[in-house]
Design a protein around this nucleic acid. Structure first.
Length: 274
DNA sequence: GCGACAG
DNA sequence: ATCTTGTCGC
């Protein structure tokens, strides 16, 4: 998979102000409404049943009428000053491709500028892909970001691909309701607050839903498991983003694509440790 | 000045 | 993210 908007790609050597203004340009280019080349209802972990199926072109955008869309999960692990970016692609419940790349890191982790640290390395891994995913699921935020341009939004726009951000903690914004001790499947909107700037046609008032808190898993009744914070990256709405994450949830807290990428990032890491 | 913050 | 043993429970 190749970058389509390389002009907006995270480049090393930018000043903080330059990185922030690039994020505003990314937000301007971002689409937080459904603009998908496939039916979101077809995204699932169920393996397609193709018994009496005739020969079809499963490589077309969105696949054929029976095969589910290709969903890529992306995550990283670290080795000293290098990042190992892993990508696992699923079609229904089947893993169809796994690739990874090891890249040097230019910046430290700075809240709000994550895509400038991990974005380049992730693009390195995506370039290794033979297939062309219909949806990208990132570990981190999308629109839930100070300038509405988190990692998922930045790379979704650069690749011009539908993308979703799945974070384990909240960067900014305010949940409509208290998120503790909620049952599986529960969700509540995350509204923009004072720390979120309006950018390029995307408002940032309390009426703006920039994402959702989503309880993907809960064991008993104890508030042991925190919710996930799901936000649209590019080409879909916040509501569709949570629905998709819900559809991609298996038996664990993280949705399957991201969980598998997380495991693969650790597994592959062992090959590079001195 | 204080607070607060994805991975 | 990463450093890390055991431990509680389905």
């Amino acid at each position: 998979m190749r970058p389509v908007r390389s002009d907006l790609a995270p480049r090393p050597g930018l000043s903080r102000d330059e990185m922030e203004s690039l994020q505003r340009r990314v937000a301007e280019a971002a689409v937080f409404e459904d603009d998908l080349p496939f039916d979101p209802a077809r995204v699932s972990l169920d393996s397609p049943e193709r018994e009496n199926e005739t020969l079809t072109d499963a490589t077309a955008p969105g696949g054929d009428a029976d095969s589910p869309p290709l969903v890529a999960g992306i995550d990283q692990s670290f080795l000293d000053d290098r990042a190992l970016s892993a990508v696992v692609v699923l079609r229904g419940g089947e893993v169809v491709e796994r690739v990874h790349a090891v890249s040097d890191l230019d910046l430290p982790y700075i809240p709000g500028l994550l895509s400038f640290r991990e974005g380049g390395p992730i693009l390195d891994a995506l370039a290794e892909l033979d297939c062309d995913p219909d949806l990208l699921v990132f570990d981190g935020s999308g629109r839930i970001h100070f300038r509405q341009a988190g990692l998922a939004t930045h790379l979704g726009v650069v690749c011009d691909a539908p993308s979703i951000g799945v974070a384990k903690s909240l960067l900014c914004g305010t949940p409509d309701e208290d998120v503790d001790g909620r049952p599986e499947g529960w969700r509540t909107p995350i509204r923009a607050d004072d720390s979120v700037d309006p950018v390029g046609g995307h408002p940032a008032g309390p009426e703006t839903t920039i994402g959702y808190a989503f309880q993907s898993r809960q064991y008993d009744s104890r508030p042991i498991v925190n919710p996930l914070y799901v936000s649209p990256g590019h080409r879909l709405s916040a509501a569709t983003a949570v629905d998709l994450v819900s559809q991609l949830s298996g038996s664990y807290k993280l949705p399957e694509p991201t969980r598998l990428a997380d495991a693969y990032a650790d597994e592959a890491k062992a090959q590079y440790e001195d």
